Simulated scan of single mutants.
Amino acid sequence: MRAWQGDRVVITKADKPYLNLLPHVDTPQARKPGGLKGKIRMPADFDSTPEDIIEGFEGRL
């Protein structure tokens, strides 16, 4: 119950500290655009999908 209230809790094993239970602190991180720059490549024919593939996705088979 104390961990839910934000207190640090020490769990012991054989009378020795074994594990620290700490309250979670949410630290939102700002998004940094461009993290995958140069790692993703689009093929030259990306926009020319064959009609049978499109029909398969749209359920017209």
Rank of each mutant, 00 (worst) to 15 (best):
R60E: 09
R31E: 14
R8E: 13
G56D: 01
T27F: 09
S48N: 15
R2V: 13
F46L: 14
K16N: 07
F57A: 09
L22S: 06
G34E: 00
E55C: 06
D47K: 04
K39V: 07
G6W: 02
A14Q: 11
E55Y: 13
T12I: 05
F46P: 00
A30F: 11
Q5Y: 04
P23E: 02
G34S: 08
H24A: 14
P23L: 11
A30T: 14
D52C: 09
R2S: 10
D15R: 03
M42W: 06
K13A: 05
D15L: 12
L36Q: 12
I40N: 05
R2A: 13
P33L: 05
M1D: 08
T49S: 04
A30D: 07
Q5W: 05
V25S: 09
Q5M: 08
P23K: 04
D52E: 10
A3Q: 10
A44D: 04
G35D: 05
Q29H: 13
M42I: 11
V10A: 01
G6D: 01
D52Y: 09
G34Y: 01
N20V: 11
A3Y: 05
P33A: 07
M1R: 05
E51P: 00
A14Y: 10
A30G: 11
P28K: 02
G6S: 04
E55T: 09
L61T: 04
P50V: 01
G38M: 01
K37Q: 14
D47L: 09
I40V: 15
E55D: 14
K13I: 03
D26I: 13
L19H: 00
G34Q: 02
K16H: 15
K16Q: 08
K37H: 07
F46C: 03
T12Y: 03
K32V: 13
P43N: 03
N20H: 15
A3I: 03
P17F: 03
Q5G: 08
L22W: 07
T12S: 13
T27G: 11
Q29K: 13
L61D: 12
E58A: 10
Q29R: 10
K39H: 13
K16Y: 06
K32T: 15
P50N: 01
L61W: 11
I54D: 02
I54N: 03
D15A: 10
R31P: 02
I53F: 14
G34I: 00
P33F: 07
I40W: 02
L22H: 03
N20D: 15
G35P: 00
A14S: 12
E55I: 06
